[in-house]
């Protein structure tokens, strides 16, 4: 990887369905509280599908923040590394969102424009009812996810500063 890999932080989810919007809440918090160097780009991807491909295709390194359907404690964080994504250990093709993120990654790979590394930081939701805002366990998970993400970024020498632009 070169000196300043183009790095994307993509938060996905639906803001109108409670914890489903977790990824978007994390992006909002990052944008409010940190300033990132020029090689880092943040995106509130909402529930967009193929529309995310331009953002994904021009990155060397991609972090995805999302919720995950796992039988585990709400608010618990689950990391899927590059190998998990590539080995097809997770599937979104058969999830409700049919043009899922993984399918888009497949397509990017086919076009030889996929990021070299992808990591997914996911959280188990507690409440997916129609409302705006996070449940208590997920509101608490925002800071933990951000700490974790900043740690990963530090490993590739990306050091955001605190404070608003």
């Amino acid at each position: 990887m070169n000196q300043s890999p183009k790095t994307g932080i993509l938060g996905v989810g639906n803001l109108l369905l409670g914890d489903e919007g977790f990824g978007v809440h994390v992006i909002n918090r990052l944008q409010e509280s940190y300033r990132f160097p020029a090689n880092v780009e943040l995106l509130d991807g909402g529930t967009a599908g193929i529309m995310l491909s331009p953002f994904i295709e021009d990155k060397d390194m991609l972090f995805v923040i999302d919720v995950v359907s796992l039988d585990a404690e709400p608010g618990s964080i689950h990391l899927f590394g590059h190998e998990d994504v590539c080995a097809g250990n997770i599937q979104t093709r058969m999830s409700p969102h049919q043009v899922g993120l993984l399918e888009i990654l497949d397509l990017c790979r086919l076009r030889e424009k996929a990021p070299q590394r992808i990591e997914m930081i996911t959280v188990v939701p507690a409440d997916l009812s129609t409302r705006i805002g996070l449940s208590r366990p997920l509101a608490r998970a925002v800071d933990r996810v951000i700490t974790l993400l900043l740690g990963r970024l530090e490993k590739i020498d990306i050091l955001p500063t605190m404070g608003v632009v």
Binding site: G13, E20, T47, D66, V67, F80, Q91, H97, G100
Partner: peptide, 10 residues
Amino acid sequence: ACAVHMLDPH
């Protein structure tokens, strides 16, 4: 959809 975006490991 009008809808959700959740990873499903199964």
